[in-house]
Design a protein around this nucleic acid. Structure first.
Length: 405
DNA sequence: TCTGGGGTCCTAGGACCC
DNA sequence: TCTGGGGTCCTAGGACCC
């Protein structure tokens, strides 16, 4: 298989190019930027369609209007940051309060999910029009199998990658990084060679020169824990990983992970594209502004709990799924996490049923410590259509029993 | 100054059935 | 009194990804 890995950069606002910008903060006030705009330009008519105006005139918003990282208070983390911001040691998933210490003058942009979704859909529909075999890897990333795309083999895939890039740029103004390689594993790594808008083609014979010098952490699937363990064993680069015996890796990481690491280090990956995946679970969770106590903040906690159940139920109904494993997730003030779940007889998408079952789960978990997070999850999903069948069977069975007794 | 929200997959023990 | 396997489902926690 010939694979592409493409990811788009979802930063607009051309006037912020070259400046340290951080995107994140789950809890910013709704219309903060618009409120600031209104303040900065009081002569403008703001009442209606102000959002539309801001949308259409993004590049006219003066830099001075944007909020600064140093004014942030809350528990949000960084979703992404510009390269200028990264110079200060700022990176993804870092707490915003911590980032503010490192670079207080950075501009803080809110995460605008409806906008992101819109651009994400555009990005993906452009890709599928050009190359229909696409695996969805989240809002800003996809894998593409271009083996059978006409012209896909020209210049090792580079000309097709250019076409995709240009079409995305023309339609959305977004830049896009693309890696081209014999499989998904290498394509993903290649896509990072030339950010933010490069194209990298890596052939099988380039493994030793292009991939082996990289840190093990660059392998998709080796996270902080595995990386630390590898380092403690003296393995830092992918080349060093490739030099280890299979048996040695299995000894330290187990049969499955060890064998996988061995393959990955040698650039071997036979995973096909996954184009039709069904969701396994749906969940909603929230981190509180301040830690809450089960007894002292009972009312507040109860209200949040109910709301989360209603949100999950609404998500299930909107997407047409039902599930039978209801679960809760707590995070204590010491950041330790606990989960409890319970499987019910009939899959559901009903808020009351979810709330009731989740309530039972809550009774089985320690509640002495204060809580910083509460979440509700529904797993064991199936399409809602199937459920009526099962419910019908249950009803039939009930009817039969009634007749018998 | 602590660390979001939405997911997937894996492991491991225990229940339960054949 | 002690001792089988295999298979599936459920539950809790944790690593990892975007």
């Amino acid at each position: 298989m010939d694979a592409f890995y493409a990811s788009v950069e979802l930063l607009r606002y051309p006037q912020l190019k070259g400046l340290p910008v951080v995107i994140g903060g789950g809890r910013r006030r709704e219309d903060d930027l618009l409120a600031r705009l209104r303040q900065a330009q009081p002569e403008r008519e703001w009442d209606q369609a102000e959002r539309d105006w801001a949308q259409a005139h993004l590049n006219e918003i003066p830099v001075s209007v944007f909020p600064l990282l140093k004014d942030y208070t809350g528990r949000g983390v960084i979703t992404t940051a510009t390269y200028a911001a990264r110079q200060f040691g700022i990176g993804s998933a870092m707490g915003l309060m911590k980032a503010a210490k490192l670079c207080p003058q950075a501009i803080l942009l809110p995460v605008d999910f409806p906008e992101i979704r819109k651009y994400s859909q555009q990005f993906k529909s452009i890709v599928t029009e050009i190359a229909p075999l696409m695996e969805d890897r989240g809002v800003d990333e996809v894998y593409i199998d271009f083996t059978d795309v006409p012209g896909g083999q020209r210049q090792g895939g580079r000309s097709l990658a250019r076409l995709i890039q240009k079409t995305i740029l023309d339609a959305t103004g977004l830049t896009c990084s693309i890696g081209v390689a014999p499989n998904k594993l290498i394509a993903k790594m290649a896509s990072e060679f030339n950010k933010p808008k490069g194209i990298s083609v890596v052939f099988e014979e380039d493994l030793q020169t292009q991939i082996w010098p990289l840190a093990c952490r660059k392998i998709n699937g080796i996270g902080p824990k595995a990386d630390a363990k590898l380092q403690s064993l003296g393995v830092v680069t992918i080349g060093q990983l490739a030099a280890q015996e299979l048996a040695w890796l299995i000894e330290h990481f187990g049969k499955k992970t060890g064998a996988w690491m061995h393959d990955a280090a040698h650039g071997r990956d036979d995973r096909p594209l996954v184009m039709d995946s069904e969701p396994v679970s749906m969940s909603r969770e929230t981190t509180f502004e301040r830690d809450l106590h089960a007894v002292r903040d009972k009312a507040e906690l109860g209200a949040v709990f109910t709301r989360l159940c209603e949100q999950v139920a609404a998500d299930l109904q909107r997407k047409g799924y039902v599930g039978k494993t209801i679960g809760i997730k707590l995070r204590y003030d010491n950041f330790k996490t606990a989960t409890r779940d319970q499987t019910i007889e009939l899959p559901t998408d009903d808020a009351k049923t979810i709330r009731q079952t989740a309530g039972l789960c809550l009774k089985r978990v320690p509640l002495e410590r204060r809580l910083r997070l509460l979440g509700v999850r529904v797993g064991g999903l199936e399409k809602a259509g199937e459920q009526s069948k099962i419910a019908q069977e249950a009803t039939d069975l009930g009817a039969t029993e009634q007749q018998l007794f």
